[in-house]
Design a protein around this nucleic acid. Sequence first.
DNA 1: AACCTCATGTAGCGATTGCTACATGACTAG
DNA 2: CTAGTCATGTAGCAATCGCTACATGAGGTT
Lengths: 184, 184
Amino acid sequence: MNVRDEQRARVIAVLANHLLATGLSQASLRQLAAAAGVSDRMLLYYFADKTEVLAQAMQSLAGGMAAKLETALPADQRLSQAALTAKAARLVVDPVFRPFMRLWVEAIAAAARGEPPFAEIARQIGEGFLVWIEARLDPAKVPDRPGAAATILALLDGLALLEVCGGEARVQSAVTALEAASLG
Amino acid sequence: MNVRDEQRARVIAVLANHLLATGLSQASLRQLAAAAGVSDRMLLYYFADKTEVLAQAMQSLAGGMAAKLETALPADQRLSQAALTAKAARLVVDPVFRPFMRLWVEAIAAAARGEPPFAEIARQIGEGFLVWIEARLDPAKVPDRPGAAATILALLDGLALLEVCGGEARVQSAVTALEAASLG
DNA sequence: AACCTCATGTAGCGATTGCTACATGACTAG
DNA sequence: CTAGTCATGTAGCAATCGCTACATGAGGTT
């Protein structure tokens, strides 16, 4: 393997964590390079441009999160809409997933203003989420699975927004209410 | 009234619409000044700095939206959680409100990365939403009103995110599912 | 008439942005 | 040994950013 290709892999891994920790505001070329321990010059030697760096780091993160979600809530168990909503909500507010959800909000906002590569990436990741949700909805109990999945995804994403504009307490009260509703 | 104060009012009104139409990506000082039909130099004569311009424009928008929401769904009618969720969801995906919801997502993302003045503004507007929602929940039918309100707000905000990462179709299918659920 | 505040224009500063031109040593294939 | 690719450093460019220093005329006050 090339030195270059090794560095590509290493840098992406480091930068994925950097993005998780600091968000998209600390993501200028020079800042990314510093975080990865290379010069900005070399970052652009390893990757074509900043867009490619961000795209690969986000892909890496999305893959990791998908794997964690897969094991955190196995797909062989099919749930009602209320039950899956409550379980998934508890999941995404977990400290393990929360940094990703924060970054997810920033990525969607970047996508909203058409900033490459986020427009495409947001769609990909969103699609992945929908598939994950639908696979865990019991067809017997949920007639409109696409509609239910879209509703659940909206709510999960919304919890991340709620944290920013309403604080931790609001998020907890929402999750608690969802769990209560899934029992009644 | 000063020329300066008149201009402040006029410029804010124009810029509020500009932000609604173009989002926060077209919001550099020079771009804002051009949109308002003044020089960047004068924009900073009317306002202390860019932060004040954005803060006032966002406040203006929030006020307008609050008024529209107030009349669109009067507070004298108290609803169940499912019913309010469905009605409010239909409301925020309306063409009248959608540009605001798009901007709202960008503002929250800016708040998430601590960008002034959005951190404070997002909290204010979010709080206003929560009050609006709680005032329309029937205490007899909804035991945990704060929890229900937080849940509804998360879902409404999430619909705006869903539009970006899943497209118009997903949003419609979610709203339809919510309306179906509120009838059953 | 002298002065002063208000309103506005011209010009530019220092920082940061993404990105590039050019040089150079190391190693490798012929 | 020579030619050439690989890996890296130094330096900088053009654009944009938020913001400011300075000048100037217009109109009111004393």
